[in-house]
Nucleic acid binder design. Sequence first.
DNA 1: GGCCTATTGACACTCAGTGCCAGACAGGCC
DNA 2: GGCCTGTCTGGCACTGAGTGTCAATAGGCC
Lengths: 194, 194
Amino acid sequence: MSNEGLWSRTRQAAIAEVGTVAMDLFLQKGFEETTFDDIAAAAGISRRSLFRYFGTKEDIVLSHLAGDGALIRDALAARPDDEPVWTALLNVLLLIDDGGGDRARLLKISEMMYGVPSLRARSLEKHLRWQSDLLPEVKRRLGTASGDLQAAAVITSAIACLDAAGEIWTREKGAVPLGNLLTDAFDAVRQAAR
Amino acid sequence: MSNEGLWSRTRQAAIAEVGTVAMDLFLQKGFEETTFDDIAAAAGISRRSLFRYFGTKEDIVLSHLAGDGALIRDALAARPDDEPVWTALLNVLLLIDDGGGDRARLLKISEMMYGVPSLRARSLEKHLRWQSDLLPEVKRRLGTASGDLQAAAVITSAIACLDAAGEIWTREKGAVPLGNLLTDAFDAVRQAAR
DNA sequence: GGCCTATTGACACTCAGTGCCAGACAGGCC
DNA sequence: GGCCTGTCTGGCACTGAGTGTCAATAGGCC
């Protein structure tokens, strides 16, 4: 129903393009200053259809950012079994270092992200959803003595490090590679938690 | 302008009562099913004034929950200097274990909190704001080798543990004291991060 | 071509949130 | 007491997000 056929593939492409148009508007006029009517007009579709593509403005931004729960889960499963959990999580998060696109645009998006409260909140929520994707594998690695709480604590702490690193990266205008910051953050927790 | 005078004190009390009325409605009808008009009518004030008291519905709930940034900051400053940071943070967060009120109500509020996405997001945001309150003191304790990134990583990880513990506490219907869960969560990160 | 189904756009609606303005109301001053 | 002043309140109108409904349509399938 959804993934096969020329139909849905072109539709996905169309939706993606609408998203790009919207992002351009956000970066030009600001997130909160851009209305759904603006986006619909710029994209040449009706307001109603826009709502069908993206339920909220926040969804538009979120869908344009890297990080897929399933991908991360698979990446963690692929790490060697004897690697300590904390190191494994670091290595997995290092993979989403980058959006692949141009730096300046990514930085502007990040600034918007950290500047608009509702966006920041949605980003946190999205990261939180990774928790459920990673839980089984982390529990397995932690051993039988650990339950959901222990695994959840470790995962959310790791994600918290990612958020902290991302915030500093943004504040420093991308001067230091996110990977370095992330490693430093993980090390800091390693040092402090003992 | 705000803290002195019989006037503003009675006003604060009135606002608090409106908040309680609203919380009762939320717990009865559900958060999203309760409109501002409902609350204003039940509280006997105009919709416009209600908006002046609380900018959003989420604010009503948040203002009814424990946890003040300044309080936590002071509590951390009061911990002995030779206490490891991670332990000090645990001890500080243990202080906000409880809302003081009746358990069943607190549990229902927590369930609403974790069940309604917009509320969950606002709660995360609120906790995030504690980060800036704690940053100077944690930086001081981490020593000169550490900067904002290191301190932020440690703090957000600690807060992440609090959220994880809170979630499990809610899922388990408050069967295990939050303090125990929080301690376990901190220990889990202690074990994993090495 | 003709049928079937999903998608679209238009309309109407609810509700959150904000700006504006006029009236009420408490406190200070004469 | 009467007056002035600043604040609080309620009412009105407005924008914008988000949803339900329904007729028109466009593409895929036979």
